[in-house]
Design a protein around this nucleic acid. Sequence first.
DNA 1: GGACATAGCTAGCCTGGCTAGGTATCTCGA
DNA 2: TCGAGATACCTAGCCAGGCTAGCTATGTCC
Lengths: 173, 173
Amino acid sequence: MPTPPRNPAPPRTGTSPTTYWFDASDPAVQLLHAVRRFRRADQEMRRGMESDMDVNATDLEALRHVIAHEQAGTTVTARDLSTQLHISTASTAKLLNRLSASGHVRRTTHPEDGRSVIVSATGHAHDEVRGWLAPMHQRMIQAAREVPEESRQAVVDFLDALAETLTPEPEED
Amino acid sequence: MPTPPRNPAPPRTGTSPTTYWFDASDPAVQLLHAVRRFRRADQEMRRGMESDMDVNATDLEALRHVIAHEQAGTTVTARDLSTQLHISTASTAKLLNRLSASGHVRRTTHPEDGRSVIVSATGHAHDEVRGWLAPMHQRMIQAAREVPEESRQAVVDFLDALAETLTPEPEED
DNA sequence: GGACATAGCTAGCCTGGCTAGGTATCTCGA
DNA sequence: TCGAGATACCTAGCCAGGCTAGCTATGTCC
């Protein structure tokens, strides 16, 4: 169970009628606004992808995992999926039923462990996902290339710092 | 209905057995990896917040909207919420039933439009959300401050470029 | 070879979306 | 001013996608 972050109750004291977490006069806030815009766009994109491919968010995520593994040359079992998606193995079975009914994945028994099922994406799934992701990645990489060389490290550091910031590190008290 | 991004079918031609969207030799890819780490952390954080506050993702999002509006000194109606959350007004009614049953929000009729309902957060909701977000924002701002001044603009530009990249701009053909 | 662990499955429940359809309020033109 | 329509919200009842419980089959270990 994740801990809420430190400082459980920050000083409400002089809370202005504006906001308690934004202060437009602070230049750092500009950065966070940009972060917010990015997150929102990200969410919208996922929504669009779901409705376009006509699968729900979890199924899509599963598909991405499967494909990513295939790209990396590794295999994924049903169990792997349930772990990565944070859903039960039962839900995973249902999910695989849906995805194989819709012709996105195939199940084959693991050659070395008869209990396991290896999940692989069909060509159709590859095409569909690639149709969305590949061009997007092209454009994202393009955006990344346009970051001036001397600022690249700063960007990476910032993003990693943010990620760190969001991660409720395992029970520290 | 959102359009999929351009290049519906990118050249599968020489697809290596590795990946089609990552090429570790490209320094720009480092940036995207950082982005990915951030997105994942963000997702995890939301999950933690949901389970800690014991409300589902949508309800939490609704709560954030309500509070944000209150902070900004504006009001939110049920309709506003359904629009912002992309759910039907019926689902919004149910959502408000849940959130008011759990003591997070209150409904009051709009003073100038008898049909409308103004949604406001209870002190409890404020405290709970602030308990999560405020310290997190503190730390995020801290992270933002640590971005060297000369790189700030680059970071903002990059994030906005990414956001742009993800946004399937309205029907261009 | 038998006890136990693990992978996956189905059955059946519950939550949180949805559509359909109702009431109350507001707006606008005759 | 009053009736037609639009709008905000609601409840009722459906459905999808989670969940737990409990099963079978396979693997592991003494």
